[in-house]
């Protein structure tokens, strides 16, 4: 019986190890495969030049700019809304019907497939509101998509701010607003930033919602109402339409490296944040 159990224990452990190793192997395989084929295509020119003949040759300069602008637009819209929501949920009210509804709403929003955001954004912003394929249409669409992430992470971060700090501020004559601005938000900032950085990652990686709202122009945008192409969209078009596998790999490498850096950055900030909260 006992020997039997020991054997089962061993077998289970081996299987768990194997499955975990498979998962990690997949990760490394994907990352490795893309980088192996793409890193050779990376050069200063690739980053700094305009694409030629639909991206068959040349670089991805306007695409990098487009990705950044679109992401910034989304974050600038969703950031204040998300942080504001989190502040309301944590500072202004206790658990009740309304907060539960708001949380449920955010969860639902988080579950909506990106293509549904694309469908919505395309017909509402691009067509009905006549904003066309543009940074603003794409930014608005993406901002709805990342709003739940920002709410969630900001809420967690704000909740982690110790109550005594707030009370000190109150006792020194701080109003609620002053306490939020001077104590709560600065203390929660690293956590909030982590959420924003993760959202940036989502924006950079998103394709379905972007391609129908921001379009796929290869030109540098002049205004918020110009179309841009993000790296994900560019990669999709290059590989799907067989324009240039070499540039597709190179673009994917840039994508993966950016995502890696974004993850690392958020991890690093979070780590310091946790240390600070637990340390002192």
């Amino acid at each position: 019986m006992s020997i039997n159990q020991n054997i089962i224990e061993k077998i289970v452990k081996i299987f768990l190890w194997i499955f975990t190793i498979i998962t990690i192997f997949i990760l490394f395989y994907i990352v490795g495969f893309i980088l192996k084929n793409g890193i050779g295509g990376l050069s200063k020119e690739f980053f700094m030049e305009f694409p030629k003949s639909m991206g068959r040759e040349g670089g991805i300069f306007p695409i990098i700019i487009g990705t950044i602008l679109l992401t910034l637009a989304a974050v600038f819209i969703a950031g204040p809304l998300g942080i504001g929501t989190a502040v309301y949920l944590t500072e202004y009210t206790r658990e009740n019907r309304i907060t539960q509804m708001i949380r449920f709403g955010a969860d639902c929003l988080a579950g909506i497939p990106s293509i549904v955001f694309g469908l919505f954004g395309f017909v509402l912003f691009v067509i009905k509101l006549k904003m066309g394929w543009s940074i603003i249409s794409g930014g608005l669409t993406l901002s709805i998509m990342i709003l739940p992430t920002i709410i969630r992470t900001s809420e967690e971060a704000i909740k982690a701010v110790p109550k005594p700090l707030r009370e000190v501020s109150y006792s020194l004559g701080g109003t609620k607003w002053q306490t939020i601005v001077f104590i709560v938000i600065p203390q929660a900032l690293p956590g909030i930033l982590t959420g924003i950085i993760l959202s940036i990652g989502r924006c950079v990686g998103e394709t379905a919602a972007v391609i129908f709202t921001a379009g796929s122009s290869l030109r540098l945008p002049n205004s918020l109402f110009d179309s841009v192409r993000t790296m994900s969209v560019h990669f999709y078009i290059l590989s799907r339409e067989g324009i240039s596998l070499k540039n597709a790999y190179a673009t994917a490498s840039v994508l993966i490296i950016s995502i890696g850096m974004i993850n690392f950055l958020s991890y690093w900030i979070m780590h310091r944040f946790i240390r600070r909260i637990e340390g002192k």
């Binding site: 005594p164 700090l165 000190v168 006792s171 004559g173 109003t175 203390q187 002192k280």
Partner: peptide, 18 residues
């Protein structure tokens, strides 16, 4: 807030602002 300025409070646990 004005009342709290007139009546200062020092807590049992010293909590300096960071």
């Amino acid at each position: 807030p004005e009342l709290r300025r007139r009546i200062g409070m020092v807590f049992a646990q010293p909590v300096p602002l960071p």
